[in-house]
Amino acid sequence: MKKPKFINLILIFILIFKTSYANELNSQVDQITKNLRCLICQGQSVYDSQSDFAISMKTVVKNKLDEGKEEKEIYEYLKNKYGEWIVYEPELNQNTFLLWLIPLILFIFGGLLITRKVSIK
């Protein structure tokens, strides 16, 4: 029988995660700066970069959080200064609704195409 072996394996596997924590302890600064583009780097996030700009930006984000600003407010504040380019997650607006929508439309379209190619008989 294969089942008991299975269960043993599974138990060992679970134990790996026993000592690990989810990353909920990551500070909010990290979370926000991961979503910010380092404007003077090549495709790096502020979080990943060690450039002067990124280091200052981390401080700014920290200060804003200390002032009690919400994540959203900080993004708005920075977008006002640097444009939407600084945020990695494009918000839904008239410029970007197609970005979010095209894949979904294609998915529905594909689904319709399949139903035409498939019969129940």
């Binding site: 979503n35 444009g83 939407e84 945020v87 990695y88 997650e89 494009p90 410029n95």
Partner: peptide
């Protein structure tokens, strides 16, 4: 003329 970034959150969300 507007510049946007499409990063990991976009891909993950979709």
């Amino acid at each position: 003329g507007s510049k946007i970034s499409v990063g990991p959150p976009f891909y993950h969300n979709l």
